[in-house]
Each structure stands twice: as C-alpha cells, then as structure tokens.
Design a protein around this nucleic acid. Structure first.
Lengths: 181, 181
DNA sequence: TCTCCCATGTAATTCGTTACATGATTCC
DNA sequence: GGAATCATGTAACGAATTACATGGGAGA
C-alpha cells in the first residue's frame, strides 16, 4: 500500500472532476488534512498521475475567464484505483492507520458494502493478532510516561478493534432496513 | 515539531549509548517500529546528528573484534533534545500522534513528572478545541464507510482525551504513594 | 564449507517541504 | 487603486525507500 497522496487524489477524482486548487482546499479544510496541501506536493503528483494516463486534465472555460484545469479519472485510472483499494491489508499497514481509514472511507463507493465488510473483517483479524505482541512490551522497568504511552497505543488498537465490530453491526442493520445501494 | 526520526534517535541515545544496529533493531522489534529501520534512513540520520555535534560515535573494541560504532549524546545534543521536548504542542501535531506520543514517552526522563503532566494538560486543551471542528464535517450525504471512518476519527481523539485525564490521575496517585522518579 | 546473523555503509530514485513566481479576479 | 483570494506552477533542498555492497563471526 504505497503512495497515500496519490491514492487520496484518485479517490477524490473518482467522486467528481476537480482542479488542483479544489484538491488543495480539501486538504487544508477537511479531516483529509492528513495529506499535504502544499502546491509543491499536489501539482507534481497530478503531473505524475497524468503522465501515467490515470487522470486527464482539461482546461475549463476556454474563453476569457480565469483558467482552471479540471482533472478527471480515465478508465485506466479507475482500474488503478480499484486495484489500490483491493490491495490486501498487512500488519505493516497498522502503522499507517490514516491510510487504512482513507481506503475504508472510499470502499463503499469503489467496491460496495460487501467489500467494506470484508475489509473490516480482515482489519479485525490483523488487529487481534497484533495487539498481544504490543502487550508483550509492557515491562516493569519503564518510566510512567513510557508505560502510559504504550498503554495508550494498546488501548488505541483495542478501540479500533471494537470499532470494526460496531461498524460491521452498522452494515448489518443498514442492510435490514431498505438496502442501500 | 520536526524530524521525528532524529528526535527518536536522540531520545534513545539519551537513555544509553547504542550502535546504529542497536537502533535499527529497536525500530524493527518494538512498538517504536513506527520509525524506519532501514539502514538508508538510520545511518545518514546518525551522520547528520554527528555533523551537528549532537552525538559522537566511537569505535568499540579497537582490537581484532567485530567493529561497532557506539554513539552517545554530547552536551550539545542533550540540550537540543531538551529543546525538542519543550517545543509546545500545536493543532498540527494532532496529525502526527505517533510523534506526540514519542515525545510524551520520553518526558518523564527528560523533564520529570511535572512536565509530563503539563504536557498532558496542553494536549487535552488542544484536543478539546479540535474535536468539535471534526464533528462539523459529519454531513448527511456521506457513504456509510465515509461516515464510519470519520466517526472513528472523532472517537479516536475523544478516547485520547479520556486517556489524558486518566493519565493525569495516574500521576496524582503515583505522587501520593512514595514519590516516583 | 556454507549459511545465517552481526554491522556498517552507499547510490539512485522518489517524494515532500519551503519558498518563490506569476497573473487574473473580486471586493473595498 | 490596492488587498485578498483564485489558480497554477517551479526550484532548491532534505530526507526516506529500495537495493546494493562489503566483511567478520558463529554455528551446522
């Protein structure tokens, strides 16, 4: 699971065509702000995606108006995005939870609720295996702040595990009451 | 709050002298594995710190044995580390919670329990201000996975806020029963 | 002897950061 | 007319990643 910024850009462009400036604003003003909103990150990233043929930018309003390049996903880009979304989770991904949650947040739209539930299941499995290894590092000699920090890490993953369960329950109940999508 | 890897290296070397390989092992085998354990990250970082005069490496076992460069903090390095630890938290730091927790985990040893409590207090203040801005992004049109991801983000910061309170309580109770340190 | 682990490094490439540069438009 | 904002980009630099390279020592 590489290149989180590109992954986020593809996800946003899959929703609708946007300009570089639109994308920047999303990264400055919304919870997606984990990603860089600097023009030096976004414009080069868009250029890379365009060179790969995954997105296509076209200037809107040819006339006298303020110029604006609107980017949209190509068929190849949609396929690449789908593949990124399908990449199976590994233990390493737990170190980049932001990216994991980005993927999940786009999953309903890219692959539908069933895939979202499968994703939650695999996340739960990985967490259940990982948490005990964290606990093994609780040692007697630690400073209080060191111990508290580690305890927080453990509690954090545990609460994420709890979240996966409640999220799966939400999918079940939303399926019962008039199926979404 | 910049350069998390260097910060982590200084923190580890402050505890005791270690070799590059020791440091790598810590990053591969312990919960500090958020940082890169690749030699291409660690050795250049150690060189930078040494060039700045913050650490000094010296070869152990001059004789025929396997060579090993042990790095230790210099006085300048200890001062730099102290300053990094003292850098006040900002809202931006919430996007790099790993780094925040690293700082906290080292705080008892670098500045003592009183500083740790002050740190927790400032973290709680920033969280209390930030969480409502996240909540403002819960919108009706979102997909279920999008909504769940955002809800998780909010719950995560809320549980962190709860953790700061219980951690402060732990400091109070550990102060009551025979002073720590 | 062969393989695995200890231990240290470098090189090429990629990506992000900060800072700069440019020009149009809107609002006062 | 001047400031703020829209909108797009580039340049210099710093740092991480992957992969490669080297050599000693320990155990089978």
């Amino acid at each position: 699971m590489e290149a989180p910024l590109e992954h986020a850009l593809l996800g946003l462009l899959q929703q609708q065509p946007r300009s570089g400036y639109d994308l920047r604003k999303i990264f400055t003003a919304t919870p997606m702000g984990i990603f860089s909103d600097s023009p030096g990150a976004i414009y080069p990233a868009l250029q890379r995606l365009e060179r790969r043929g995954w997105i296509a930018g076209r200037i809107e309003n040819r006339g006298a108006l303020r110029r604006r390049r609107l980017f949209r996903l190509t068929a190849a880009g949609a396929a690449a995005f789908r593949q990124l979304q399908e990449q199976p989770l590994t233990t390493d991904d737990l170190k980049r939870l932001h990216h994991v949650m980005l993927k999940f947040s786009l999953m309903d739209k890219s692959h539908g609720p069933a895939a979202s539930v499968a994703f939650l299941k695999s996340l739960a499995r990985i967490l259940a295996a990982y948490i005990p290894t964290l606990r093994a590092h609780l040692a007697p000699g630690m400073s209080l702040s060191g111990r508290l920090a580690l305890e927080h890490g453990i509690a954090d993953y545990e609460s994420l595990l709890g979240w996966t369960r409640s999220a799966m329950a939400r999918y079940r109940s939303s399926a019962r009451r008039g199926a979404p999508r």
